[in-house]
Write a protein that binds this DNA or RNA. Structure first.
Lengths: 394, 394
DNA sequence: TTGTGAGTTGGTTGTTTGAACAAACTAATT
DNA sequence: AATTAGTTTGTTCAAACAACCAACTCACAA
């Protein structure tokens, strides 16, 4: 009720944003096409577009093809790719991933910075260096528009509330960078941004209302898109399925946790125990598996089954259109994916939710953050925007 | 995008509905108060109200109190309780529950009809009899406005897709009654309507965005309110947590299901096995427990633990503001509820989601259906409406 | 091959419309 | 007299509309 449009001014603002969203989602597009899509009179669209052009958000690309029955050529409109850029970061275990994107979500640059073993205080100067180096080469009209950070932990009210893999040392990233640059700074859980990526960067998912992205990294969590909106939960903890316990009805037993069965860490721990090894990495697991190592095969068979069971439970809880798996381990061993699907199919005899792998999970994470912070920069938090990650650098 | 308001006509329609919603939610209310709440000019509210009065939805109740510093008395407006009524049904195991409500959600009549052992074909005439008997006594201006059925099973596209406790015999209730009465007919899962009840009939929950209602009857399911909207899932199967399996990572083992641990049927089966009994009912369990029967105590201790574990998992998955338990067994043994809370509290050291019992679960189910079908009758499916179940019959 | 005109489409300009608004009013109260 | 509720009357302004211009395709005749 509170967010409802009530008067002409608000209506006008919303219509301007609708036109901008149309340009965003269907660029290059003509005025007349926007007019048809939005059921607004073409003169109204022309007028609204003029406003957007004055603000610099959009630009004319040139003429398109005329209809094949005659008529004037349309003028093609698009997002102004030189308006500004966002900076998007992902705190990985070994690397800090850095991506620069324009207003339209195109990748302007991507870089991995080695941060293995570093504390957050030691990482901050590296982040600042990236921000400065990009700023110095910038030739856009409005420069930096926003910054996003993907967090492998939970986030509430734009602050990290739980971070098992990186000590946040009570540093408030949002506060620090907002003060430094006066732009929106956004922290978001990694599974959540990955889910946003699937919603916003994948044309195939445009019509889907509900999606779950199960992120299997060192821990395990889910990003939830419900009615095309990211569901964060009341405390930003929705989708923390890794903490779930196995219902056993037993008062005294400490119930097992999902994470103990199918996080990447759990699998590695299991193989290390069997092989009396230490400090194994994902790459070691992949190599052992490819060498046909028996203990690894057993562990990964358990992994496959657990993941299938998680998919089944998730499907029962959320009933999404599709389940995505964002897992570097699965990305490295794609042959496991059909096995997961087959185990899952045996469990779910009637309704089968399609299962898909998220490819290039680091890009997904960064682009999801880009999508969220770009919306903030535009003041269009609730708009349906379809981004297209073109790696063409202008 | 498609549901957005774009022109003055749509804006006008929406504002009319906003005024109606204000009357609904804050009746009795004056025009000036609506004007303040909606940030609409008082003359605009007057004009919009005139439209609603012509349609018969609202009426003037009389004068309210003037401000204590002088000034004219406000005229109090309210929903016209003689506009029409909805009929709401709940297929219980032993009884068909029937409720008649006016436009404002007040209970006009409530009745239980014995249907134990009857097939749906045998129940239909009983339903028709109730509809006819109510219609014959009706003195409202528009009569029957809509019909709702609470289904102990899953519903998709207004048709039952799974019904473990009552054979639907391929009867399309929605089709049958829509054709018969030309009013909206709504089928909805019982846990879902129960969740809607908590959202719409409980002033205390007005500000809450996310709620989960765990319904523990013969089976177990959850109704999900996310961002104040009922989340049904893509196939109407969201919240089917009873089917969830216990992650064990074991390829060959048939994994246990949640429903095997903590549905009412599971508890009864367990006690029956221990006592070599048959055909036990919930009342028998309650009686045995109150007599201090050991096997029953053990079973219910397991029930308490399982429910606490389910709450924990649900809280991790959805992160709601509150979890409601709709369970006739718990309603009969309210002393178990603090035990559940205490077990849950031990599992969740940081964020504790409040747990509450839904009282009078049958009323909750019927009123939830009433709330949904009343919205359909008004063409206001997405409005925030707070109903108030006053049992005062006019 | 070229030229012409009918038909079509994209976009602009000037005018109309109508729902919300604002101000001035009446009514009823402290 | 001051204050508040609600009505009446006239104003406002963003969207709709109508008429227009611009620029294209195509068919067909010369």
């Amino acid at each position: 009720m509170s967010g409802a449009i009530r008067n002409r001014m608000q209506l006008h603002q919303q219509n301007i944003q609708s036109v901008l969203a149309e340009v965003f989602n269907h660029q290059p597009i003509s005025r007349i096409e926007i007019s048809r899509n939005l059921a607004l009179n073409k003169s109204t669209v022309s007028s609204l577009y003029r406003d957007l052009k004055e603000q610099g958000y959009v630009e004319e690309l040139g003429e398109g093809d005329a209809s094949n029955v005659g008529g004037r050529k349309p003028v093609l409109l698009a997002i102004n790719r030189r308006y500004g850029y966002t900076m998007n970061f992902d705190f990985g275990y070994r690397h800090l991933h850095v991506m620069q994107n324009n207003l339209s979500g195109d990748v302007l640059s991507y870089k991995q910075v080695n941060v293995k073993g570093l504390t957050l205080k030691q990482i901050l100067p590296l982040i600042n260096h990236e921000l400065e180096s990009v700023a110095s080469q910038d030739n856009t009209s409005h420069g930096l528009l926003g910054i996003s950070f993907a967090i492998h932990g939970t986030v509430d009210q734009n602050a990290v509330t739980y971070s098992p893999f990186l000590d946040m040392e009570h540093i408030d990233l949002a506060d620090y960078y907002t003060k430094k640059f006066q732009v929106p700074v956004l922290l978001e859980n990694e599974a959540n941004v990955s889910a946003v990526y699937e919603r916003d960067f994948n044309k195939a998912n445009e019509q889907l209302q509900n999606m779950v992205t199960i992120s299997i990294h060192r821990g395990i969590g889910a990003g939830l898109i419900i009615d095309q909106k990211l569901h964060r939960g009341t405390h930003g903890e929705a989708g923390e399925i890794g903490r779930s316990v196995l219902i056993n009805g037993n008062w005294s037993d400490e119930p097992g946790k999902v994470e103990d069965f199918c996080s990447e860490d759990a699998i590695i721990t299991q193989i290390q125990a069997a092989k009396n090894a230490e400090n194994m990495s994902r790459e070691d697991v992949v190599q052992l598996f490819k060498q046909g190592d028996e203990a690894t095969k057993v562990a990964l068979r358990g992994f496959v089954t657990s993941v299938a069971q998680i998919i089944y439970n998730t499907a029962n809880s959320f009933d999404p259109d599709v389940v995505f798996l964002n897992s570097p381990l699965l990305e490295a061993l794609p042959e496991l994916e059909p096995q997961i699907e087959s185990v899952y199919a045996k469990m779910a005899p009637t309704i089968l939710i399609p299962v898909k792998l998220t490819h290039n999970s680091h890009y997904a994470t960064l682009l999801g953050g880009c999508a969220l912070v770009t919306r903030e920069a535009l003041g269009m938090e609730d708009a349906n925007l379809n981004f297209e990650a073109q790696t063409t650098v202008l």
